[in-house]
């Protein structure tokens, strides 16, 4: 589904990703751990083709197509979608109108209505301007609804569980787990709360712009909870030597 090969990315003068390799097969859900500022969000931005994230070498292959130079919207139309960690406010654009346009007028479809219902996105929220005055939980739910409205094959979730209270976490977790059936995904999580509801098949740790290691999600999360990310540095330098 998604294959990233030896990817190097800069933002301005700064190298934010170096030698990133990652492969997610069809129907697989992977999780990406890593400390703040390690490059997790940068990876999502690079996959989406954010204009400030320049790929200086390497390739991103999606469904067998090299999308490294492709405009963002074309990547989306190929079948990917993402939820952003800090989406901007869209004054004057109602959530309802945006969802309707994203889904090509399918807002009244059962599937989408069920999703809106499941996420407890009520009429009041649907009528508000996107992300304007939304709470942390509302932002995440609104991101999820938009991503699923695109009916993608690959989903990228950037911190779907940060800044969310327990009640909303459960809502979001259950909705994600149900909607991810048969789809591929990369879930970025700093503290791993969302993994109470979703069981990825593989985990990766990003550290200083590199994938430091890959492995079993539960084992890795236990390791991180116990030891933090301190040992990643050692690990990377050992690999290098």
């Amino acid at each position: 589904m998604l294959k990233i090969e030896r990817l190097y990315v800069t933002v301005g003068e700064r190298l934010v990703l170096s030698d990133v390799n990652l492969e997610i097969a069809e129907g697989e859900v992977h999780v990406l751990f890593g400390p703040n500022g390690s490059g997790k969000s940068s990876l999502v931005m690079a996959i989406l083709g954010h204009p400030s994230y320049k790929v200086i070498s390497g390739r991103i292959i999606f469904k067998g197509i090299d999308i490294t130079e492709m405009p963002t919207e074309e990547r989306i139309r190929l079948g990917m979608a993402a939820t952003l960690q800090h989406p901007p406010k869209l004054h004057g654009i109602r959530l309802k109108e945006l969802l309707n346009r994203i889904s090509d007028g399918r807002l009244r479809d059962d599937g989408l209505l069920r999703l809106i219902d499941k996420l407890r996105i009520n009429e009041d929220l649907l009528n508000r301007h996107v992300n304007v005055g939304f709470s942390g939980g509302e932002i995440k739910k609104c991101e999820l609804a938009q991503a699923f409205a695109l009916n993608p094959d690959l989903l990228l979730f950037d911190e779907p569980d940060s800044g969310v209270d327990i009640e909303n976490l459960e809502l979001i977790g259950r909705a994600m787990s149900e909607l991810l059936v048969g789809k591929s995904a990369l879930i970025i999580t700093h503290h791993g709360h969302i993994l109470r509801y979703i069981k990825p098949v593989r985990a990766h740790i990003m550290f200083k712009g590199q994938i430091a290691c890959d492995g079993n999600p539960e084992e890795m999360l236990n390791q991180i909870s116990k030891n933090g990310y301190g040992w990643c540095e050692k690990c990377i330098s050992m690999k290098k030597s």
Binding site: E73, I76, P88, L90, I93, R101
Partner: peptide, 19 residues
């Protein structure tokens, strides 16, 4: 943000201006 939801650049611009 809007392009990441599948809108072309011109569609995104006019949506934001209209907003």
């Amino acid at each position: 943000y809007l392009r990441s939801r599948g809108f072309r650049l011109d569609e995104a611009e006019s949506l934001l201006v209209r907003g």
